[in-house]
Amino acid sequence: MFSLYFGHYLLNRGLITPDQLTDALDLTESVHLKLGVLAVNAGYMTASRVGKVHQMQTKVDRMFGELAIELGFLTKKQLDDLLSTQKQGHLLLGQALVDKDYLSLEQLQVALDEYKKAYGLSEGQIYKLQQGDVDEIVNTFVRIADSPEKALYTFYISLMLRNVIRFIDNSPRVESSQIPEKLNAEWLVWQEITGSVNLFTAIAAEEPVFMDLARRYSGQGLLEPDELAQASVAEFLNLHNGLFLVNMSNNGVELEMKPQLIGQNKTVTGLGTGCIVPVYLRSGRFDVIISDSNPAL
């Protein structure tokens, strides 16, 4: 998932083109990881040190990690971390971009350094992001406005991201967004949560993404936004909210929820100090909405 975030950063900075990003992301799914690129990505080694190890490897038949430790470029613990990442099969975007000659290793390192600076990320945070740590992803990429419910919204969005990964798509990307005065939704699924805090929760999507969500959640080849397709997206929200209530209950907060509702071509106003988070799948964007106000529909 880290690849998606870093890839879009490179795209927004004009360092790569959309085609190059797509191409590199496709490659990430099929190519074997190289420790040198992983080490630069993790901030454990500089590009020049990786170059030195590669140069040595042309002369001696020894493993990259072994040589890097011998030269004092990596610790055993760092090597173990890299090997663990490598085993997970998440080829980092960096390697794909370098392999495709879209960026040099040096350019990659500069871009990564700037990226860390832009988001104020420590090495530890980068490592967590690369491991797909959902809480770290939400804390880094989703800016939730200060409000009494900020912690609650953050928890809700983190759980939603986990559920998207679990039930819909293993590599979604989230962003920040401002609550609009008026939200127009081609498809809107919403559900109210009541109790010590009253919450409006919803998923809004254009039809192609709505259908993608429906197909992925139901596991059925749905073609039209019929009752089954609508029920699929609604049930996903219902399931997510159910799991949210269970988590809240475990923390001593008892909440209840009302039946989920579905509407087409809905305009939502009065979302107040809530939170709207765009979630990007390969098919496009849907919005997750949570607000403690009572919006008009």
Binding site: F167, N238, L239, N241, G242, L243, L245, V246, M248, S249, E254, E256, M257
Partner: peptide, 24 residues
């Protein structure tokens, strides 16, 4: 039900449910 909170499970059992299956 997806809402397998302690209070909901208790309500269901008190109301006579034979079992409680959490979604998913």
């Amino acid at each position: 039900s997806a809402v397998a909170t302690h209070s909901q499970v208790k309500r269901a059992i008190q109301a006579g449910a034979s079992d409680f299956v959490q979604k998913p």
